[in-house]
Simulated scan of single mutants.
Amino acid sequence: MTGNLRTTAATGTAVAKPARGRAGSARKNGPGLKHEDKRTAILRTAAQLFAEKGYEATSLDNIAERLGMHKATLYHYVDNKESILYQCLVLSFGDLDEVIEKTKDRSIPVLDRLRLYVRSLAVAQNNDFGRCLVLVGSRPLEMMQGGDIRQFQRRLDATVRNLITEGIADGSIKPCDPSMFSALLFGALNWVPRWHSAGGKLSIQQVADTFMDMVIEGIAAVRR
């Protein structure tokens, strides 16, 4: 991994600091790009390739080639392929920690909070880093530093369960198994990056809202 770990306020999880010395911290690299800008470009490109080709089939040579740089140059910004994947997956969390906190605001109806949460999840899972997490997962990091990622995924699941439990308690959601609902929801959302196209008929937000409409209202026709 590149450098040490720190905890971000945005995610509450550990992310890698760029190493000092070899990688530097603020010097310019390339035409008008700061070190961190170029590092982010490398991670984004790697995330795209991991999602397209698969983690195992993607090499550092592939990443360097798509970026138009020499492989040796990559090592000024990253340590190895495993650290690249780890940092891509951490970036996939985005601002979801902030969204999780908003779901605790009981002045907002629970179903409205659930809808906001699902929409935010769908958006996060369909950017470059989110698609990488969904399509590749943390399995390649099983023997390394994947624990932070799995811990955050458990927080996402717990948030859904808590909302359903609250809704059952206040009568806005009929009695059901919160864990089964969470499994249903994430099963649906995790499949979206495999079929959704940015140029398609529906935006990600519309896909999320359609899912929620079907979940909340059901699909059975009202019998008169």
Rank of each mutant, 00 (worst) to 15 (best):
A41S: 13
I42D: 02
L43K: 03
R44Q: 10
A46N: 00
A47T: 03
A47W: 03
Q48F: 11
F50A: 01
F50L: 08
K53D: 12
G54F: 07
A57H: 13
T58H: 01
T58E: 06
S59N: 01
D61T: 12
D61P: 03
N62H: 12
N62V: 14
I63T: 08
I63H: 01
I63M: 06
E65S: 05
R66Y: 00
R66C: 05
L67W: 02
L67H: 04
G68N: 09
G68I: 14
K71F: 07
K71Q: 13
T73R: 13
Y75E: 07
Y75W: 04
H76R: 15
V78R: 08
V78T: 11
D79N: 09
D79L: 00
N80D: 11
E82F: 11
I84G: 01
Q87I: 04
Q87P: 02
Q87G: 00
C88I: 01
C88T: 02
L89T: 04
V90W: 08
S92Y: 07
L96P: 03
L96G: 04
D97S: 08
E101P: 07
T103A: 12
T103Y: 07
K104A: 14
D105M: 04
R106S: 09
R106P: 01
R106E: 08
R106T: 08
P109C: 01
V110F: 01
L111F: 04
L111K: 09
R113S: 09
L116W: 11
L116P: 02
Y117E: 02
V118H: 05
S120A: 15
S120L: 08
V123C: 07
Q125D: 03
Q125P: 09
Q125R: 05
N127P: 02
N127W: 03
D128P: 06
F129I: 08
F129T: 04
G130V: 10
G130P: 05
C132R: 04
L135Y: 11
L135M: 15
S138V: 11
S138Y: 00
R139H: 10
P140V: 15
L141V: 12
E142G: 10
E142T: 15
M143F: 15
Q145P: 05
Q145Y: 14
G146Q: 14
G147A: 14
D148T: 14
D148H: 09
D148F: 05
D148V: 08
D148W: 05
D148C: 10
I149D: 01
Q151L: 13
Q153I: 03
R154F: 14
R155G: 09
L156R: 14
T159A: 11
T159Q: 03
V160W: 06
V160M: 15
R161M: 13
N162V: 01
N162K: 13
I164L: 13
I164V: 15
I164M: 10
T165W: 08
G167S: 04
G167E: 00
G167Y: 02
I168H: 13
I168R: 11
I168L: 15
I168P: 10
A169H: 10
A169F: 12
D170R: 06
G171H: 15
S172L: 02
I173Y: 00
I173E: 03
K174F: 12
K174V: 12
